[in-house]
Simulated scan of single mutants.
Amino acid sequence: MIEQHDPHTGLHSEQGALPGEHPGRARNPVVKVHDLAWLEFEKPDLERAELFGWAFGFTTSLRTADELHLRGTDPGSPCVLIRRGHRSRFIGPAFQAAEPEDVLRLADATGTAIAPLPESLGGLTVDLVDPSGARVRVVADTHELPALPTEAPLAFNVGHDVTRVNAVQRPPRQPAKVQRLGHVVLQTTRYLQTLNWYLEHLGLIVSDFLYHQGQRERGPTMSFIRCDRGSTPTDHHTLAMTLGPADRYVHSAFQVPDLDSLAAGGEYLLDRGYQRSWGIGRHIQGSQIFDYWRDPEDFLVEHFTDGDLFDCTLESGWAPMSASGLAQWGPPATKDFLGMRPGRESLRELRAVIGALRENNEFDLHRLRGLMKAFTS
Score class of each variant (00 low, 15 high):
A94T: 01
Q96R: 02
A97W: 10
A98Q: 11
A98N: 12
E99G: 04
P100L: 05
P100F: 07
E101K: 13
D102H: 09
V103D: 12
V103E: 08
V103Y: 08
L104T: 15
L106K: 08
A107Q: 11
T110C: 13
T112H: 04
T112R: 09
L117H: 12
E119D: 15
L121C: 07
L121P: 04
G122N: 10
G122T: 11
L124T: 14
V126Y: 08
D127W: 11
D127Q: 15
V129W: 00
D130F: 01
D130V: 03
P131E: 03
P131V: 02
P131S: 05
S132E: 01
G133R: 00
G133V: 00
A134R: 01
A134L: 03
A134D: 00
A134C: 01
R137Y: 02
R137E: 06
V138T: 09
L145W: 14
P146R: 10
A147S: 14
A147M: 13
P149W: 08
P149R: 08
A152K: 06
P153K: 14
P153L: 14
F156G: 01
F156D: 12
F156H: 12
F156S: 06
V158T: 07
H160V: 01
H160L: 04
H160F: 02
D161H: 10
D161E: 13
T163A: 15
N166G: 03
A167M: 08
V168Q: 08
Q169L: 02
R170L: 03
R170Y: 00
P171G: 06
P171Y: 04
P172T: 12
P172K: 11
R173C: 09
P175H: 11
P175T: 11
V178C: 05
V178K: 05
Q179F: 02
L181E: 04
H183T: 08
H183S: 07
V184C: 04
V184N: 00
L186D: 04
T188N: 09
T189G: 12
T189H: 14
L195Q: 03
L195I: 02
W197V: 03
W197T: 04
L199M: 01
L199V: 02
E200M: 04
